[in-house]
Simulated scan of single mutants.
Amino acid sequence: MKALVIGSKGTIGKAVTQLLKEKGAEVIEVSRSGDPALDITDNSGMDAFFAKLGAVDVIVSAAGDAAFTALNKVTDNDIQLSVNSKLLGQVNVVRKGVRHLRPGGVVVITGGILAYTPIPQTSLIAMVNAGLEGFARAVALELTEDRRVAVVHPAWVAETASKIGMDPSPWPDAQKTATAYWEAIEGKINGEPVFVKGYEPGKK
């Protein structure tokens, strides 16, 4: 299995990369500051990257930013960041990357549980996460030769929660979160959302 992990230096991306390697995959690790570098908001750069990529079995996107802010403080820049980075950035990963998927391959993108269970100040994050799920459901209807697409909706990750001053104890760590990506990769899921086991919507 040959896999591309975009956002491989992030908390989730690192864990997904490690798990894929443990499963015996050959992993191409890319990030905005890596070598090779890839910024999913840069269309021309993405075109150049994928032109050199060749064929792969798996593409995982654990990249994309969205603004965490109260509605009465949302700026045009916050909206553009959220749409251009986490939403359109990953839409373009699928659009451009699927051409390089071998038959039976899968693209896995990253949404988030806030699409289902938002909290205050997460309207933009919930918006793009929900948009990614709708996109994946529709794209799944167009893929051929057993190619698939899936969207993983992680819960808060313990390491990230700790960094922003939240209590990390209720949340799965990055290693457990990575298992949801593996479920999307090894299974038959196409267009459907995938959740970390035990952290599905409605569970506490």
Results as ranks from 00 to 15, higher is better:
Val16Lys: 06
Arg32Met: 13
Gly112Pro: 07
Ala70Glu: 12
Pro103Phe: 12
Val139Ser: 01
Val74Lys: 08
Ser169Ala: 13
Gly89His: 01
Thr41Asp: 08
Asn84Ala: 09
Asp65Cys: 00
Thr69Asp: 13
Ser8Tyr: 03
Ala55Trp: 13
Leu20Arg: 01
Phe68Ala: 04
Tyr181Val: 03
Trp156Asn: 13
Asn92Ala: 01
Met1Ala: 14
Ser33Lys: 14
Ser33Asp: 15
Arg32Cys: 06
Leu88Trp: 01
Val151Ser: 05
Gly89Trp: 02
Asn72Lys: 13
Ser31Glu: 05
Thr160Val: 15
Val106Ser: 02
Ile6Arg: 10
Asp47Ile: 07
Gln90Phe: 01
Val149Met: 10
Ala161Thr: 12
Phe68Asn: 14
Ile185Pro: 03
Pro103Met: 12
Asp35Ala: 10
Gly13Gln: 03
Pro193Gln: 03
His153Thr: 08
Leu114Tyr: 03
Trp156Met: 15
Phe68Gly: 08
Ala161Asp: 11
Gly198Arg: 06
Gly64Ser: 11
Thr11Val: 15
Asp57Lys: 10
Ile12Val: 15
Met1His: 11
Leu87Asp: 02
Lys9Ala: 12
Arg95Phe: 08
Asp167Lys: 12
Val60Asp: 00
Met166Pro: 09
Gly24Ile: 09
Ser162Asp: 12
Asp76Leu: 13
Val30Ser: 07
Lys86Glu: 04
Val196Ala: 00
Ile79Phe: 12
Arg32Thr: 14
Val93Gln: 03
Val108Tyr: 04
Gly187Asp: 02
Val93Phe: 05
Phe49Gln: 07
Leu4Arg: 10
Lys2Pro: 13
Asn72His: 14
Ala138Pro: 00
Trp182Cys: 01
Met1Ile: 13
Trp182Tyr: 13
Pro168Gln: 13
Lys96Thr: 01
Ala37His: 12
Arg147His: 00
Gly134Asp: 09
Ile28Lys: 14
Pro154Gln: 10
Asp65Tyr: 07
Arg99Lys: 15
Glu29Met: 08
Leu53Gly: 09
Ser162Glu: 15
Val128Glu: 04
Ala15Ser: 14
Asn72Ile: 08
Asp78Gly: 09
Ala15Leu: 03
Arg137Ile: 01
Glu159Ile: 07
Gly45Gln: 11
Ala184Ser: 04
Trp182Arg: 07
Thr11Leu: 08
Asn43Leu: 14
Ser169Gln: 14
Thr110Phe: 01
Leu81Arg: 12
Phe135Gly: 01
Ile109Ser: 03
Ala150Tyr: 04
Lys9Phe: 02
Ala150Gln: 06
Ser85Ile: 07
Ala140Trp: 09
Asp35Trp: 00
Arg32Ile: 13
Ser44Phe: 10
Ala158Val: 08
Leu38Pro: 04
Ala178Met: 02
